[in-house]
Design a protein around this nucleic acid. Structure first.
Lengths: 198, 198
DNA sequence: GATAAGTTTGTGAGCGATCACTAACTTTCC
DNA sequence: GGAAAGTTAGTGATCGCTCACAAACTTATC
């Protein structure tokens, strides 16, 4: 079962994400990845110089996936409220599609072993908050959102909402639909943020 | 430097929390703890049968600290809004006093190695959410909070708020005052939840 | 009240397992 | 036939933990 390097590399990255989800990011050893693929452990080092480099490739792929999803979301409409909901929707969908993501954010791999990884993800999350803040600000200027609250603060509340539901989902038994629950809570928070009240 | 077991045990637990904060929960090896105290590594096993048992003791101590802080907070007043703010205040203070707590929640030690730990902390967080929900419900019946929103949902939004600010604090460079920022955001969210709007 | 006996606390050496990673050799495919 | 892709075998480091033993403190006995 010999494969060209390009394919094998992609297979390794996908397996890391799959294993990170199923057994936890910190249990993803090179041996476990190799066994899941069906090659010997040293074979991985034909394609990645170190384990850290492998993780970095994983991180970039995930971050790119998020960025693309955001761009798509922002194309769904013009109204800030629509775009805002699409952003949250996209983020929840990406998390559901990459269930290792929440755990990965707090893994030893990211926070201790691999400083570069941390920078990658931290920048990605900040970018998301920035996009949210921009839409909220636009919504306030439209009169759709109450403007007695700083747009940045509202953006923080929304990112916290997504993080909170993702964490509850990841740490718990994943016994609810992340996407539905997230959007439901978003709508609740949106009602609070809406202008006019009641 | 011989010490009675009681003292040594407490010293070990304190050192684990200190090290978990400074180098990350997953880098807290038995050797590191022993070195920080100034004893040999096997000495730890005079006081704890396994490393998991040591962590369990740490978890119970932290959970007890949280429970006590909540009780104190609920004694600060009668008005739901006052008590709610006191609860958030206490939680932020406890996190600041035990800075390893946020990382601990997502550590390998808790999520992979030690299933009992996970149960302990999960129950603790659920209890907190319950306390918040009770105060919000009381506030809605008082007419202080708008009642077009489920108290449970509002409680989730508030716990997410605390989690979110704690995570931003822990994952970032701790470059802001957790307590101040947390209470500030709480007041923002409280304004959204308040009855009457504007 | 000294001393013997027993318990508690700690040490030094080391075991078995696991990890990321390397070197040298073999197979597969264009 | 030569490079790419994979194997077998092995290295050094680190981990939690055990074991035999020593020192320190406590208790009981004469």
């Amino acid at each position: 079962m010999r494969k060209p390097a390009e394919l094998r590399k992609a297979e390794i990255v996908a397996t890391v994400l799959d294993l990170a989800d199923r057994i936890g990011p910190d249990r993803v050893t090179t041996g476990a990845v190799a066994a899941a693929i069906g090659v010997t452990q040293p074979a991985l080092f034909r394609h990645f110089p170190t384990k850290a480099a492998l993780w970095q490739t994983v991180a970039v792929q995930v971050a790119d996936g998020l960025a693309v999803a955001w761009e798509d979301a922002l194309r769904t409409g013009e109204a800030p409220l629509v775009r805002l909901r699409a952003l949250i929707d996209a983020q929840l969908a990406q998390i559901a599609a990459t269930p290792a993501l929440p755990m990965l954010l707090f893994s030893r791999e990211l926070n201790v072993t691999n400083a570069e990884l941390r920078v990658t993800f931290h920048g990605t999350l900040s970018a998301f908050r920035g996009l949210l803040a921009a839409e909220i600000l636009a919504g306030q200027q439209d009169g759709a959102f109450r403007d007695d609250i700083a747009a940045d603060d509202a953006a923080v509340l929304l990112t916290s909402l997504v993080q909170g539901v993702a964490i509850r989902w990841a740490l718990g038994a994943r016994d609810f639909a992340l996407h539905d629950e997230g959007l439901r809570l978003f709508d609740v928070q949106c009602r609070l943020l809406a202008a006019g009240g009641e």
